[in-house]
């Protein structure tokens, strides 16, 4: 437990001390704000809640991108620089390393989400939105982001280079999202399974419109768990070669 906290703190300090974390946040924030300005609030006829839903829809996409970009360096960089030997020779379990790194990325992702709050604020200035809708949307973004970080972390465990890591993470996330399309061309019961597996479609849209379903919360927590579990297993397997 102490080791998790120690690793998470070091990793978070590393995000704050190097430029990469800020650059990721700033660039993605700029893109999201651009989308917000150009698309989300372009239609003045819409009701505020519809605008907010539209905003969450866009924000979810950019949150995944941030999650994958933040997590790509976590383990791949350790491999690249050889610092992973320090973790391997310390009395620290692989799962503690993985969870510590996940928590630091999640904290930084939360920082990103905090910087986006001004956009719903702008909607609030010009219209009326409920606090519940806002809360549900951001809970959804955090859960969605958490699952993205876990997937990215798995990619980062597999690869020695950060570029390969982010490609693996991105492909996994896209593939998981696309099971929804597969579901449309298959028959039941397979189509039910596939659509329940889909990363975004079925599970994020309720959050977007302000509804929290337990099954969606559980879905993202399970994806997070599986990502971290797989990353831990890869770390453990590395001891053999």
């Amino acid at each position: 437990m102490r080791a998790i906290w120690l690793i998470a703190r070091r990793e978070l300090a590393s995000y704050l001390r190097t430029m990469s974390g800020y650059v990721i946040i700033a660039l993605v924030l700029a893109l999201l704000a651009l989308a917000f300005n150009a698309i989300v609030i372009s239609n003045a006829e819409q009701r505020s809640s519809e605008v907010l839903s539209e905003y969450f829809r866009w924000a979810s996409f950019f949150t995944t991108v941030v999650g994958l970009l933040l997590s790509m360096r976590l383990l791949a960089e350790e491999q690249q620089r050889g610092t992973v030997a320090l973790l391997y020779s310390s009395p620290v379990r692989e799962v503690e390393v993985v969870v510590g790194k996940y928590l630091s990325a999640l904290a930084f992702l939360a920082l990103f989400l905090a910087t986006t709050l001004f956009m719903p604020g702008l909607i609030m200035v010009h219209g009326k939105i409920s606090f519940g809708h806002l809360f549900a949307g951001y809970l959804g973004l955090l859960l969605f982001g958490s699952a993205s970080v876990a997937i990215g972390l798995f990619g980062s465990a597999l690869a020695r280079s950060q570029v390969v890591a982010v490609i693996v993470g991105g492909v996994l996330a896209v593939a998981l999202t696309m099971t929804w399309m597969l579901a449309r061309v298959t028959e039941r019961p397979l189509s039910d399974v596939l659509s329940a597996m889909a990363f975004w479609n079925q599970h994020f849209t309720p959050f977007q419109s302000g509804i929290i379903h337990v099954r969606d919360v559980v879905y993202y927590l399970v994806v997070t768990y599986l990502g971290l579990f797989a990353a831990t297993r890869v770390m453990e397997a590395r001891r053999w070669r």
Binding site: R17, T18, G82, A85, L86, S89
Partner: peptide, 23 residues
């Protein structure tokens, strides 16, 4: 190890303290 496992963005003192606590 054959290449020292150093975190470039840390100061020497902070790094050594981290390693000690890791142990």
């Amino acid at each position: 190890p054959d290449t020292p496992p150093l975190y470039d963005e840390m100061t020497v003192g902070a790094y050594l303290s981290f390693v000690a606590q890791l142990h």
